[in-house]
Amino acid sequence: MPIQLAKSLKLHRDKVWSIDCSNGMLATGSTDRSVKIIDASQYKLLDELDNTVHKKAVRSVAWRPNSYVLAAGSFDSTISIWNREGEEEMDNSWEMELLAIIEGHENEVKSVAWSHDGAYLASCSRDKSVWIWESDEMGEEYECISVLQEHSQDVKHVVWHPYLQLLASSSYDDTIRIWREYDDDWESAAVLNGHEGTVWSSDFEKSETQLRICSGSDDASVKVWKYVRDDEEEQQEWICEATLPAVHTRAVYSVSWSEDGHIASAGSDGKLVIYREAQPGQWKIVDQQELCHGVHEVNVAKWIKINGKTMLATGGDDGYINLWNWDTSSTSNKNN
C-alpha cells in the first residue's frame, strides 16, 4: 500500500518546525510560539501550552522518555520544561504546567533532545555550542554538565542514540559530530565530513548490532554513516557508507530512521521519501509522496508509533501536521 494521508490537522497559524511523539501523544512547535499536545490516536487537541512563555518561535520539542515531561527550545534562546498536571488522577483532562525555564545559550536554541534513559537533556544553538544538562528527580532544576564548542558554526540539530550514551549534532559548518561521555565529562568522538552544505538533521539506526546514522543536508542529499572502530583514547572512525538515491531537488530538512530499518526524508521540495536497504549499504527508494504539504516546505518528518502501529508525521510551513499511513510489509515486493 503506498503512502496514504490518514489525517491532516491545521494546528498552527505559522510554520510547524518540530514534532515529537511519545505514548501516542504528539507535541508540536511552531513559529506562532505555541506548543500543542495532541492525542494522535483520536486526532484530538488536548492542550495548548501557554504561548506567552516564549517570546519567539518554538523551534524544537522533545518528550522525556517514559514521562509526560516536555522540553521546548525557542529562538528566544531559552528552553522551557513542562509536565502534565494531575497525571496521577488518571482522568482525561490534560493540562501542561511549566516546571522550569533553562537559560544559558547566547541566542536561538535550534534543537533539544533527551537521552534514551531521560538522564540528560542536550540542546544546541546558533551560538555554535551543544550543552548537556542534568536535572534533579523532580525535573525542576537543571545543571549544565558540559558545553561542547567544537563546531565552527550554528548547531542545527541534536539527537541521541536509542540505547547508548552517544549524541550526534548537525551543523551549519557542514559536519556531524559524535559526542561521548568520557571521565565524567563529554568529548568529541568523531567528525563526519562529506556533506557540501549545512547538515539539517540526523538520526541513529535503531539497531543493537551495528552503529549507523543517517543525515539530511542543504546539499539535497541523504547519507548513511557507519561506525568502524574505536582505538583506545583515539577518535572513533566512521565512514560514509552510502549516499541515498538522489531524489530531492532542494534542501533536506529532516530525516528519520524507523525501528524496522526504513529511512524517511523530507524538505524544501515538499517531497516525503521512504528508502529501504536492499543490500548492505545499498539503498532503494520504496515510496515517495510529492507535495505532501501542498506547495509548502516540509520542516519535519518523523516515524511515530500510535497504538503499536507505525506511521509518519510531517509538519510544514502551512501550519499543518499530516499523518501518513504506510504499510512497511509491502516493500519487499515493490521496486525490486
Partner: peptide, 9 residues
C-alpha cells in the same frame, strides 16, 4: 531558512 526566520523575529 532558519537564520532568515530568526532574523525576521
Amino acid at each position: 531558512k532558519e537564520r532568515v526566520a530568526a532574523a525576521c523575529e
